[in-house]
């Protein structure tokens, strides 16, 4: 799985939702703007608390009161800060016009802070360090990209999304469960 939290804030109250497969494609879930995202989130399972820093791999918080989107995740964005900056600007200037769009730089901790939740509740100290992977990630984060390379990466994100329109386990399971309920 790619465990994900979605959070909706309305009238100063927040609800936390859970999706099992979305974190690696969460950037692509944001393409369609606030209305589509909220419509997607509402039927998801409600959670009592946020995922912790080990299990959570991405989150999107939609603050309807402040018109603010705070998110992190997506395999294209995880370790590529230059692409994150570009991606955020793309959303602000296209489908999220008028909204504050921000990357949650500390992941679940940033989300918890925004909600006023004690960050200790999301910190998992059992996190294991993988040295080899750590070096790889650091190297990727330090890479500088030309504008053309950033445009290529955004294009790849878009193409990947279009090629996988049928791949949406969360939506698939949702319709399956709906049918199942009807059948009793």
């Amino acid at each position: 799985g790619h465990r994900t939290n979605y959070i909706l804030i309305e009238n100063k109250e927040h609800d936390i939702y859970y999706a099992h497969w979305d974190a690696n494609i969460i950037g692509r879930k944001l393409f369609y703007g606030p209305d589509s995202l909220v419509q997607y989130i509402r039927p998801l399972s409600v959670s009592e608390k946020l995922l912790d820093t080990v299990w959570g791999e991405g989150a999107a918080l939609v603050d309807m009161d402040q018109q603010k989107l705070l998110f992190w995740g997506d395999e294209f964005l995880w370790h590529t800060p230059a692409l994150v900056t570009c991606f955020v600007q793309m959303l602000r200037e296209t489908t999220w016009k008028g909204w504050q769009v921000e990357w949650a730089s500390e992941g679940q901790v940033t989300i918890a802070k925004y909600l006023g939740v004690d960050t200790q509740t999301v910190l998992n100290t059992e996190e294991e360090e993988d040295d080899d992977e750590g070096e790889e990630v650091e190297a990727k984060e330090a890479t500088t990209y030309t504008v053309a390379e950033l445009a290529n990466l955004l294009d790849q994100m878009l193409q990947n999304h279009l090629q996988n329109l049928d791949y949406d386990p969360t939506a698939t399971i949702r319709s399956f469960i709906k049918d199942h309920h009807k059948k009793g």
Binding site: Y32, C86, Q89, T94, V147, L154, L158, L162
Partner: peptide
């Protein structure tokens, strides 16, 4: 559907503008 096509078009145009240097990045 139509909304999807519009969104994809919008994003594609933005990416093309970025490629052509029409977008000012911070």
């Amino acid at each position: 559907d139509r909304h999807r096509e519009q969104v994809i078009q919008q994003l594609s145009t933005w990416i093309a503008d970025l490629r052509e240097g029409k977008v000012s990045l911070p």
